[in-house]
């Protein structure tokens, strides 16, 4: 193990480590802690210049005000309506593409695979004008569907990379023996491979949920008003409206951040497994 386990250090070293941990964490999360405290600070504190002291009272009313004074509920609902179908779509499509690229040998296999990988790295701006144009032509501008379609397509790139590598690592003999038995390709996929892919599906779902929920650029490009805008784009609008009301901006930011944070803490193992794919081999 590297570094040397702290248990083997002297009493002084161990104590120092136990102190250094919380101190460094507080420094690391300082901006976040600051905004969390600001979000429960009553507006009067800010007016009186009490920016950093103990809040005179805990004003959870800021959170209520966020919902009362803005379409925050609608924004959150839109984010959900965008994220859930996008996750299902991208994961479903990439189960198929990943299976195809992992189990069949054909001439263009590696080429197709690396097109998916490379497409996944391009800057969004090179896609912006044509995708916006396409969405307009389909009559899907400023709709949830327009955003969902794009996210499904784009995330399929990353998901294919993930799924293909995952299926490649599965025991191949199982598949071969099923083929010898004359099981059809679709039954092999459905009855043999898909059940084995459950951990990959879980990991990808959490990851893609976070990616799509946190998307801001495409929300700006493909939507306009509170009717279809997700919470990220909504926050930008609200930030402009609540110029000096930091307690509202902070509360709004925390509300918008909660769903992916909850997802992360609930599904931590899957999340990290997905994110660190390839960090140990390859």
């Amino acid at each position: 193990m590297f570094p040397r386990p702290i248990e083997r250090a002297g009493t002084g070293g161990r104590a120092l480590y136990q102190v250094a941990l919380p101190v460094s964490l507080i420094i690391w999360l300082l901006p976040l802690i600051g905004i969390a405290i600001t979000s429960i600070r009553p507006a009067s504190d800010l007016a009186n210049g009490n920016y950093f002291g103990v809040p005179s009272q805990i004003a959870l009313s800021n959170y209520l005000d966020v919902f009362r004074q803005s379409p925050m509920a609608q924004y959150l609902f839109n984010s959900l309506r965008i994220t859930v179908p996008a996750v299902i779509g991208a994961v479903a499509l990439s189960c198929l593409t990943g299976f195809a690229l992992a189990t069949y040998r054909f001439r263009t296999n590696l080429l197709v695979f690396f097109i998916f990988v490379a497409g996944n790295f391009v800057p969004f701006q090179i896609l912006m004008v044509p995708v916006r144009d396409l969405t307009l032509k389909l009559g899907l501008y400023d709709t949830v569907t327009g955003l969902v379609l794009f996210h499904v397509a784009f995330q399929t790139g990353f998901c294919t990379l993930f799924m293909r590598n995952f299926i490649k690592a599965l025991p191949f003999e199982l598949l071969e023996s099923a083929r010898v038995e004359g099981v059809s390709e679709f039954r092999i996929f459905w009855h043999i491979v898909l059940p084995l892919m459950r951990p990959a599906i879980a990991a990808l779902s959490v990851l893609v949920f976070t990616f799509v929920w946190n998307d801001y650029f495409w929300a700006l490009v493909l939507t306009q008003g509170a009717g279809a805008q997700p919470v990220t784009a909504g926050l930008y609008t609200l930030n402009g409206q609540w110029v000096a009301s930091w307690q509202l901006v902070s509360a709004g930011a925390i509300v918008a951040a909660l769903p992916p944070v909850a997802m992360f803490f609930l599904m931590q193992r899957h999340f990290i497994a997905g994110l660190t794919l390839g960090a140990t081999k390859g």
Partner: peptide, 25 residues
Amino acid sequence: LAPALFLAPGALMFLVYVILPIFES
């Protein structure tokens, strides 16, 4: 035929929304 069929939906979406737009841009 199986690989082509498995690939088709994902590849089509990716083509329309990611690959072609690069050249259009």
